[in-house]
Structure formats: C-alpha cells, structure tokens
Design a protein around this nucleic acid. Structure first.
Length: 355
DNA sequence: CCTAGGGCGGATGTTACTTCA
DNA sequence: TTTGAAGTAACATCCGCCCTA
C-alpha cells in the first residue's frame, strides 16, 4: 500500500512529491519540475517561520526579524519598478570589500555592480568589512544590540572591526559576518522575495553596502537552509502520519477479525434489520440508511465505520452502525485538509488520532 | 584558562535549466 | 530548428568563527 501525499501548493513549489509508504518509513522523491521557471516569484509565501511553535527542535528564532533597525532610508529595496533604474544610479556607499579608494575609482565601482560581481567574488575579495556607518551607531563598538551572544562581543560587528585591517591579498578566504542589521534586513527582504531579480539584488546590495554577489549568496544559502529545515519538518510529520495510519490499519484489521468471528458464531446477526452503510465520496464519512442490504452490512461497517466498542456485542455494533460516528476516519482526517499538508501549522497540527 | 567538538553561516564550485541571439 | 553563451537556482561542500562542555 502506498499513499501518494499531495503536499499542497507549497510542496509543489518545492518541486517534490513525497511518497509515504505505510510502515516503511518515508521516502522522498524529488521531481525537479520543468515548469519551475515563472513560479519562483510566487514561492515567497512558503517561507516558514521556524519558531519554537513550529518545531521544537528548530532553534531558529523568529523574533530575529524584530531586530530590524530603524534605519532611515532603509526601505525594502524594491520600490515601484520605475525607481529601480534610478536606484542603480543612486548613491552608493563605498565598496566594503575593497579598500576605500580615492575618488578615481568611481567608474570601476559602478562596473562592479553590474558585471563586476564576478570579479570581486574571488576568495580574496570576500574579506568583507562592513563599516555600516549607515546603521544607527552600531558600527564598531561592543554596543551590540543583540543581548544573546555576550561572548560574541557584537555578532556582526565582528566583521566590521575585522576585515578592513586584515590582509586583502591573503589567499585564505576570509569569513565575514554580516551585521545583525544586515541580516535582519536580508531576512525581511527574504520574507518578501525568496528570490531576487537582478534589480532587487543590486538595490539590496547598495542599501546594505554589500556586493551583489554577497546578497545573492546569502539568498541562496537562506533558501537552502530553509528548505533543509522544511524537509526535516516534513519528514517528522510524515513519520507521524505513518505511525497513525499503521495504528489505524492495525485497529481495523483487528476489528474486522472480530466481526468475522462474530458473524460465524452468531449467524442470527445477519437476520437483523440491515443497515446499509455507504461512504460519502465527498466527505469520506460513513452514512447509513435503512435500505435492505443484507450480508454486506457487516463487512462494510467493519472497514468504513468501526464501532466504538467492537467487543460490545451485537447491540452495540448495530447501534454503532445505525448512528455512525461522523468523526472522519484518521485517514480522511489526515488528508481532508485543503492543503493536504499543514505546512504553515507544523507538526503541532497533528492529525487527530484514531483513539 | 585551555581545548576539542559541534553548529552556524558565508563562500565556492558544479550542475542543470532557461532565455536569447 | 539548432546551437552556444549568459544568467541563475539548486545543491554539495568547504571552512572560518563562535559557543559550550
């Protein structure tokens, strides 16, 4: 038995289909859809908040976004399209990954934005420094707004104090650390657009005093790690689905056996007024009527609407079939959600257990 | 105080895909 | 229609940095 789980639009965006094999763990089959282009701009909203309410194992705080600084002029970098071109020609802070050049380098820096990203993307040049003088007084000191990492001595500000005085000609690639302001702004931007078009990338790079390549890399890593976390959450959820379905299946098998035994021991049960059960195709609930349908009622009821007290004897069994429980089976409950997969709700949105 | 181990995150290289001339 | 270049996303991986036991 294999259940094809449609994971809803979000998973479709991710271009994969998860196949849940009952009792066999979870297999993830990837399908890199050919129709991926054109949907990239629409997959923003599947960005998830991996907060503590999402998954207990996920340490990523969502409150990080609240650290977005009140920086004047730091709006999101994609104003109406008419402004984008203007932004490209707008003021730009000096390139953080090169020594502050005397004024003659302006032309070269403009080249850096458009095509020069590759030029400056060598490991040597990745030694970034983020003066970030634009940001409200964070800059160099230990007055880091982030209270969390006391030992860090100022998170992103580390990079600010580091790179400018480090060797730029060294062969080892330097690890820059984006400042909290930069990270927060990138996060905010990522919530708006999980992918960037070139204009957005350039605008964001300008505003954050980063190279476009850095912005691009940040978004790539962010997508990758978001997807990784999402995959972990998905797997966890599917494991639980599998467990639930296995338990349901076991219970139904047991119940079927009991009913069959009941049928053989007490044949007069078949002479009772029959109750026909039918599965509503739309809601997957069992409906009953009094139409005479001998011989099939027992089997139908055993598989579709298990009585709440299977061993309660004939009376209880008949009562159960006459007044069927409209609680959907766990299977239906699992997949009756319109999305089919509670991506936004996370594992805490457990399907109702059958017990 | 020192250190090993692990996690995080920025960066790089590769591959596959799409678009366009 | 075919083809090659360019651009980009996805992915795997590297590795510097920081935290913690």
């Amino acid at each position: 038995m294999e259940l094809g789980l449609s994971l809803g639009e979000a998973m479709a965006d991710a271009g994969r289909e998860l196949v849940l094999g009952l009792g066999m763990g979870v297999g993830v089959r990837r399908e890199e859809g050919a129709a991926e282009t054109g949907r990239r701009d629409h997959e923003v909203r599947r960005e998830l908040e991996f907060g503590s309410n999402r998954c207990g194992s996920s340490p990523e705080p969502t409150v990080r976004l609240t650290l977005l600084p009140m920086v004047p002029g730091l709006g999101l970098p994609w104003p109406p399209p008419s402004e984008s071109r203007h932004l490209e020609a707008s003021t730009r802070g000096f390139d953080v990954n090169r020594p502050p050049s005397s004024g003659g380098g302006c032309a070269a820096e403009e080249q850096d934005d458009a095509a020069g990203a590759a030029v400056s993307s060598s490991p040597n040049n990745s030694a970034g420094s983020f003066p970030m003088d634009d940001f409200s007084g964070q800059g160099h000191g230990g007055t880091d707004a982030a209270p969390g990492t006391g030992g860090g001595g100022g998170g992103g500000d580390r990079s600010c104090s580091r790179a400018s005085d480090e060797d730029d000609g060294g062969s080892a690639r330097k690890k820059l650390r984006l400042s909290k302001e930069q990270s927060a702004f990138l996060e905010e931007s990522f919530k708006e657009h999980s992918t960037l078009n070139p204009k957005q990338k350039l605008a964001l790079a300008k505003q954050l005093n980063l190279r476009p390549r850095q912005v691009e890399v940040w978004f790539q890593n962010r997508r990758a790690r978001t997807k990784l976390k999402q995959t972990e959450v998905d797997c966890e959820y599917l494991k639980r689905c599998c467990e639930t379905l296995t338990e349901e299946n076991r219970r139904l098998q047991k119940e079927l056996a009991e009913l069959r035994a009941l049928k053989t021991v007490q044949p007069f049960y078949m002479h009772l007024p029959a109750t026909t059960l039918s599965m509503c195709p739309s809601c997957e609930r069992v409906a009953s009527n009094s139409a005479p349908a001998p011989a099939s009622a027992a089997a139908t009821s055993s598989t579709a609407a298990p009585p709440t007290a299977p061993s309660g004897g004939i009376a209880s069994a008949v009562a159960a079939t006459a007044a069927p429980d409209h609680r959907p089976s766990s299977f239906a409950a699992l997949f009756s959600s319109p999305r089919g997969f509670p991506l936004s709700a996370g594992p805490q949105a457990q399907p109702p257990t059958s017990s």
